[in-house]
Design a protein around this nucleic acid. Structure first.
Lengths: 206, 206
DNA sequence: CTCTATACTGAACGGTGTTCAACATACTAA
DNA sequence: TTAGTATGTTGAACACCGTTCAGTATAGAG
């Protein structure tokens, strides 16, 4: 009978999830750098040591946390691009959503705590590590590019690199906008707009 | 007589510099996250407490460290752009240098220590905070753009935003290249090339 | 020769991630 | 049913960390 094994595994997963949930709540409230093993332990009402039976260490927990958040976001982006059909609009809307969601998350992680630079740093990390599981997002963008009429036959590798360049651009833009946190909303908007516009110009002339 | 005051001030500066030097050496050897007040203290053969007579805290030291490195780099870029005159070439060479120097720094900070993700994080921080004192770099890029014949009369704000978008793109590209550390050199090269090319296409059609 | 400002120490506070011997409990095999 | 093993769990300990601060030494001013 392997019922036991199943249940054991399920319980293990539940514990892992409980740890991740606690970690998520703490990170949301205090920022990533406010997250500590001991706090998680207190939250789930166990002793700190136990966490190492379920995760290799703090890093592993953070990694899981960020990966989850990031994948959630990408699936969100996919939903957007299903509604519209004109390539330029799909592109613009998707990228805009990506940028805005990232910024919103940034505020969530940053403004809650008064602490200045370490949190900025942690936000950078969020984006950064998110990007590590980013193939999916890149694929999305790749498909987006393919949907442009004049890129239908373009060389695969070239298009892939173009996608990377565009993605990197958005990535950098988000960092800059996060950084200059006191930039008026209106000016942020203009920067995003400009980014989308110039990128579309570029796409148009490939 | 204020000779005394002068000397006192000089000594103060020397101590500050000694602290920064020690911090720099440690950061170069162990990465930014390996840097600690206590290690600095040991390095300069003083007790940890004294450091707080010269700096507000660890953050302040790191800030100084990064700002210094970043400014050095920008002045380096200026030197490059003085030699060549054709706008496209100046642009390409400057951006390439920026990217490559950043990557080289990345390796210095990362590969020396085996430790995986925290150092990646710290590298991100290097670029990120560097960017905080980045007006200078942006100005450089702005002037670069102005040197293109067809942009001579372009709207100031528009060009400024274009510069920001381009800069952000490079920024993001560097992060991506740092991230995927195992990418073959040749492929990195192709990505950089592609970035420069597409960006130039974009500039050409503004 | 006091006095005061500055430099400096070293212990302490309250954290951190991580490890590990020991114990408890649940389940299997005899 | 019982002995034995695998798993879950604890709590103390280790070796760090940034930061503060009472107290001491030292050097220059009056």
């Amino acid at each position: 009978m392997k019922k036991r094994q199943e249940r054991q595994e399920r319980e293990r997963d539940e514990m892992r999830q409980a740890i991740l949930d606690a970690a998520g709540r703490i990170a949301a409230e205090e920022g990533l750098e406010g997250l500590s093993i001991r706090k998680i332990a207190k939250h789930i009402e166990y002793s700190p040591g136990i966490i190492y039976h379920y995760f290799a260490g703090k890093e592993a927990i953070i990694e899981q946390l960020l990966e989850h958040g990031y994948l959630e976001m990408v699936s969100d982006l996919n939903a957007v691009s299903a509604k519209e059909t004109r390539p330029e609009l799909v592109f613009a809307q998707t990228m805009r959503r990506y940028i805005e969601t990232s910024l919103a998350d940034g505020v969530r992680y940053r403004d809650i705590m008064l602490n200045e630079s370490p949190s900025v740093l942690s936000h950078t990390a969020v984006l950064f590590r998110g990007a590590a599981s980013q193939r999916e997002a890149l694929n999305l963008l790749f498909r987006l590019l393919r949907s442009f009429e004049h890129l239908k036959e373009k060389d695969e590798d070239d298009l892939e690199r173009t996608a990377q360049v565009i993605w990197s651009g958005a990535f950098g833009l988000i960092l800059r906008l996060t950084m200059e946190k006191d930039l008026p909303v209106e000016q942020k908007e203009r920067l995003i707009h400009h980014y989308l516009e110039t990128t579309l110009i570029m796409i148009g002339h490939l």
